[in-house]
Nucleic acid binder design. Sequence first.
DNA 1: TTCATTAATCGTATATTTGCGATATAAGAT
DNA 2: ATCTTATATCGCAAATATACGATTAATGAA
Lengths: 111, 111
Amino acid sequence: MAIHKKESFTQKEQDLAAFAKALSHPARIAILKVLAQRNECICGEIVDVLPLAQSTVSQHLKELKNAGLIDGNIVGPRSCYCINWKAFEKFTVDFNLLFNKLKVQNEKACC
Amino acid sequence: MAIHKKESFTQKEQDLAAFAKALSHPARIAILKVLAQRNECICGEIVDVLPLAQSTVSQHLKELKNAGLIDGNIVGPRSCYCINWKAFEKFTVDFNLLFNKLKVQNEKACC
DNA sequence: TTCATTAATCGTATATTTGCGATATAAGAT
DNA sequence: ATCTTATATCGCAAATATACGATTAATGAA
């Protein structure tokens, strides 16, 4: 892949893709599910639930945090994470704007 | 990455992740946008619009098709694609089920 | 201070994705 | 039958992602 072409697309397309990318691994879906259920959760609890090594879970958490989907802060020697519902809302709205509006017009299949 | 762990997660988690993965590249978002606007579209028109080589676009279309997000059929020497709104609907519903319900309860941030 | 616990980061191996040119395929046109 | 056009597929190179063990850092407990 000589050169990266992602920059050639609109910011909105890139943002939406980045959001989807953060959700594109079952481990991260599972992490979000746990966080959604418990509202907040320390890292160790997530590690206990997932079939992955601690370092791998930490890496997935970092990606979710970088994508802005979760927040995290340190509580003593632990790390407490929770879903950033605001960012979540923004992206689901953008997603619906992009496709669901058009859906109403084009509901009929063509192929 | 010695072994793949994706299989260790629930089917729903895997399905949702696979859907998100199909959306995780701006080129594929752009393709879906074009298809949504025009309802149906032949491959060449998409190639003209995107800043990518024909073979690369064809590959992205294949991924979207494999993920079930678009349908395609051959019309003479061309390929006509369109969005599979039904599959789209299914996944957006699943997505909302997983997170939006819980959101109502947990709207307050914790971190 | 020393030890134990928790989690982030580093280094590394392997898998997957992305991208392109070249080639193959298949239909319609001449 | 040959040529043109449209698109899929192949083969390859480079970039990214995934996973883990080992290490580091930072806090609280003894």
